[in-house]
Design a protein around this nucleic acid. Sequence first.
DNA 1: GCAAATTTGTTCGTATGTATT
DNA 2: CAATACATACGAACAAATTTG
Lengths: 274, 274
Amino acid sequence: MADPMYRRIADDLQEQIQSGQLPPGGQLPTEIDLRERYGASRNTIRDAIKWLIARGLVETRPGQGTFVVEKVIPFVTTLTDDPETGLGGGEGGVYMAAVAASHRRPEISAPRVEMQKATRTIARALRIDEAGQVVSRHQERIIDHTPWSLQTSFYPMSLVLESGASRLLEATDITEGTVAYLREKCGIQQLGYRDTIAVRPPDGNEARFFRLPGDGRVAVFEVQRVAFDQNGARFRFTVTVYPTDRNRFRLQVGKVPPPSEVAPSADPDHDASG
Amino acid sequence: MADPMYRRIADDLQEQIQSGQLPPGGQLPTEIDLRERYGASRNTIRDAIKWLIARGLVETRPGQGTFVVEKVIPFVTTLTDDPETGLGGGEGGVYMAAVAASHRRPEISAPRVEMQKATRTIARALRIDEAGQVVSRHQERIIDHTPWSLQTSFYPMSLVLESGASRLLEATDITEGTVAYLREKCGIQQLGYRDTIAVRPPDGNEARFFRLPGDGRVAVFEVQRVAFDQNGARFRFTVTVYPTDRNRFRLQVGKVPPPSEVAPSADPDHDASG
DNA sequence: GCAAATTTGTTCGTATGTATT
DNA sequence: CAATACATACGAACAAATTTG
């Protein structure tokens, strides 16, 4: 008996979950029942359940019980959409179309528009002075009534003051997309972008919006995108946050045949992971 | 007093950590000391420490004490290297060069070569029969003596049996890269690839190799790459696993000016996150 | 190499608080 | 309001890992 008792109990319960004996969404026996079944104290049973919670296998609901978590079908965001269109994967209109194409219902909030002083990160990304002003446009995105991502774009204030892109300040959706708007209004063409993908624990706001368990178990992707115009200048910095438990990313390089056009569940391209 | 005591203790310690009063790598007071300082029981102190562990702020070492975690400098893998070269980001030679270019010391293990029946995931990725045989080549990669990623590539056995790529079976590094080898030996040109990026908890092997804390707190990236040849056929399926605490990814689409050539620590392109 | 001291890990018992039905 | 179930908190004892003498 190398392993402590709470680990053996956790392993036994994990076995029952993964064998399907305890189905997703199903309820585990109460702590009192488990105490008698395994001949351990209630605290030891709770240690075993904590171990399963830390691995995302079960969740507890006060006053109700302990339940096997149900897995969500991830949404796959393609980060390398056709550069010819000038539109990048994961951005406004592309996002709505991509979600709808997968037979799921996208929602996107009205943007919250703010003027602020550039943080160090923003200033570096946009190559502006750290005291410089930027416009931030923040939107919440929801798929099938589940919060899916949070996106904030930062634009140099000079686009508004010197190039006349006044609609950036309006707290309404720019339906044709800011990329198309800036091209027509200011002659700024988005010729390319660079993304950086990291994973970190959610902050308080994110955990609340995404309804993540309070123990910091589910991390979030943070995708930072710097967009370049025809002069190689940086005119947009976008930060998008996605919970890792419901999001995947895809990218294509070079010549790749198009994925087959079948329903997501039957598409071998859709989810190749276990 | 809305918050429970263990949360208030955890918040207080977190404050001391983030203010630098408890520096990275520094040791916290012992549980006994904290018990007296906060006037709580040892179990309550331990609950507070568990909260900090779950957020990755501290780590405990049995027989030694509790320590503030030291942050590692992440390595950034560019997934979209120049498609003209036919070589993708994160692959053998490119990996070694990219790590060396960032003034860090890369190591790569000799490959472990195995023949196996295709799993469902492999069969789908390579578009072969589920009973088909594949060659798997597995390598461990280390940067500055720290385990950094695990890569396994799967090739259809037909490449060996019908196209004569016998060196795929040798358990030695193919220094010019398998992409170059297959091009010269079999006339297979890698014209493109498709990557899928997901995050999941580590399995036992991964947690051991990467020396991740045993509580499943640090997740891993799983990057799956399907490579296509000049006929649009799939000839390679590579799965690479990277711990999320020491890895970032980058991708570039369209026309992007090259990053400035300065030392990593001073390069604003290098790490734009906090 | 061994023993002691220190520190965290596991397990028990008990009591009380809070959320849900 | 009452019953049920999980959450928090206390105290105690022993085990296991590490460092020190």
